[in-house]
């Protein structure tokens, strides 16, 4: 067993980030899209904390806290928007969101 290095953390966060991007690009359900975006933000958190701990520089961890706060605010607003869409259309499939064209 080799030791866990910074590269492992960065690789993991890159993989999570890519899963998030792929999710946003391929899925159709607004909630799943939203979850994928959260994955992208949280992969950054993982990388920030890993960098901070390996550089023994606490700044990154503080930034991660800020990012969590931002993500929470986004959840609040995002879910509210999704709920209003659902109330008006009874669907949150983004393929049904096509009233405006051109």
């Amino acid at each position: 067993m080799s030791e866990i290095t910074i590269h492992h953390y960065i690789a993991l966060s890159a993989i999570i980030f890519s899963i998030g991007v792929a999710g946003v690009l391929t899925r159709k359900n607004a909630i799943i899209l939203f979850m994928s975006i959260e994955l992208m933000l949280n992969s950054s958190n993982l990388a920030l904390i890993a960098f901070a701990s390996f550089m023994s520089n606490p700044v990154g961890q503080i930034f991660a806290l800020f990012v969590i706060a931002v993500a929470a605010a986004e959840v609040g607003v995002g879910l509210a928007i999704i709920v209003t869409v659902y109330r008006n259309r009874n669907s949150i499939n983004i393929d049904d969101v096509h009233l405006m064209k051109g």
Binding site: I81, I82, T84, V85, V97, M100
Partner: peptide, 9 residues
């Protein structure tokens, strides 16, 4: 709603 959803996502 649709505009807001697209803008948000």
């Amino acid at each position: 709603n649709e505009g807001a959803l697209k803008y948000f996502l």
